[in-house]
Simulated scan of single mutants.
Amino acid sequence: MKAAILFEPRSELRIEDVTVSKPGPHEVLIRTAATGVCRSDLHFVDGAYPHAMPCIPGHEAAGIVEQVGSEVRALRPGDAVITCLSAYCGECEFCVTGRLSLCLGAATRRGKGEPPRLTLTADGSVVNQMLNLSAYAEQMLVHEHACVAINPDMPLDRACVIGCAVTTGAGAVFNAARLTPGETVAVIGCGGIGLAAVNAARIAGAGRIIALDPVPEKRALAEKLGATDSFDPSADGTAGTVIELTRGGVHHAIEAVGRPASGDLAVKLLRRGGTATILGMMPLDHKVGLSAMDLLGSKKLQGALMGDNRFPVDIPRLVDFYMRGMLDLDSIIAERVPLADINHAFDRLRQGDATRSVVVYQ
């Protein structure tokens, strides 16, 4: 198969031939249909987060099952699936207490002494799998607990963005914030994750949804997806305007971009008793905090890895929201490109003026 390989940080991905192993007992071989280009991948490509090299990035994908291992029971060839990096073992403390997204997933990867899932066809050397998936490739070999079957009528070029952006953004609203109808929410950063949070807040019945992004086109798109108000967070006085508009601050602030200033703004916008939820991948040495007065005002700060998802349940529901016209995925996708244009898609992501690029495979 063809795959986009990162051989070293801060370099372009190269399209190479990769050999895929046969599925083990609990593994699934998927023919990739579409892969979203997510900012999380960019953190690894640009060297902000470490990873073993060479590797195939990509973690937001949808496709069709081609083969299943001998012990796989919930999936069969021909199933349409969405993958998720939150591969879960089903046995650890996090899994048995319903916090699947926190599972470290060691049991879902091949162990020492087992053949690798991916190797370079040219010389047989190991290609590391990123985030349990490695989705910038024509095929994926994953553990059965890293994907879920979906409605076969769901368009796969839209389905792929559910695997990360929508699961994370909507999960922040439904699972982490547990937004109550009528509450106010501010979403900071209107990329794929932020726009999904805006859309989910509308579905959840938020009283006021405030979108904050420096790019006018993204603010306009947020309003299309349900934002009642939108502002440029870099403009003077924006925080004060939002606090005045909401009569003391928002009930929920969701940070969806991963910049230190955005985390600080999320805390600043809270009313007494409000909760800030950080979704973005901040610089590894950065800290977001609450002041003594924030604590006295019962303000809360939390992370929500992948939206605190339970993806085997959450993803089919999100697909259903799309099929019923409640979840707008079409507006989130800015362009569809072939695998050969993956570096172009990353360049657009670095510019920060587009929403989601999706790689499609022929």
Score class of each variant (00 low, 15 high):
residue 37 V to D: 05
residue 75 L to N: 02
residue 309 N to D: 14
residue 318 L to N: 06
residue 58 G to I: 05
residue 81 V to R: 02
residue 322 Y to M: 12
residue 254 I to L: 04
residue 327 L to N: 02
residue 9 P to L: 06
residue 158 R to T: 11
residue 108 T to V: 12
residue 140 M to T: 10
residue 4 A to C: 12
residue 180 T to L: 06
residue 15 I to G: 01
residue 57 P to Y: 14
residue 284 L to H: 09
residue 199 N to T: 07
residue 32 T to S: 13
residue 1 M to H: 13
residue 239 A to C: 10
residue 2 K to N: 15
residue 336 R to V: 03
residue 289 G to I: 00
residue 317 R to P: 00
residue 310 R to W: 02
residue 72 V to A: 03
residue 315 I to S: 00
residue 280 G to M: 10
residue 205 G to E: 09
residue 33 A to D: 09
residue 132 N to D: 11
residue 216 P to Y: 06
residue 52 A to W: 08
residue 281 M to G: 06
residue 165 A to N: 08
residue 329 L to H: 05
residue 314 D to N: 15
residue 312 P to T: 10
residue 106 A to M: 12
residue 225 L to P: 01
residue 178 R to H: 14
residue 73 R to E: 12
residue 148 V to Y: 02
residue 252 H to G: 06
residue 83 T to C: 13
residue 320 D to I: 00
residue 125 S to A: 15
residue 132 N to W: 02
residue 19 T to R: 11
residue 141 L to E: 03
residue 263 G to E: 03
residue 1 M to Y: 11
residue 133 L to N: 08
residue 247 R to W: 11
residue 313 V to S: 12
residue 303 G to Y: 00
residue 163 G to Y: 11
residue 280 G to H: 06
residue 338 P to V: 11
residue 347 D to L: 05
residue 159 A to E: 08
residue 316 P to V: 07
residue 291 S to G: 15
residue 27 E to D: 11
residue 180 T to C: 02
residue 1 M to F: 04
residue 268 K to P: 00
residue 218 K to E: 08
residue 230 S to P: 07
residue 162 I to V: 15
residue 12 E to L: 10
residue 110 R to N: 10
residue 178 R to P: 05
residue 244 E to Q: 14
residue 231 F to N: 02
residue 362 Q to S: 13
residue 123 D to R: 09
residue 55 C to K: 00
residue 46 D to Q: 14
residue 167 T to K: 03
residue 46 D to L: 12
residue 256 A to I: 03
residue 344 H to Y: 15
residue 49 Y to N: 05
residue 312 P to E: 10
residue 64 I to N: 04
residue 276 A to W: 02
residue 126 V to P: 01
residue 264 D to L: 07
residue 120 L to Q: 13
residue 60 E to D: 14
residue 157 D to A: 12
residue 35 T to F: 02
residue 44 F to E: 08
residue 119 T to E: 05
residue 109 R to Y: 04
residue 163 G to D: 11
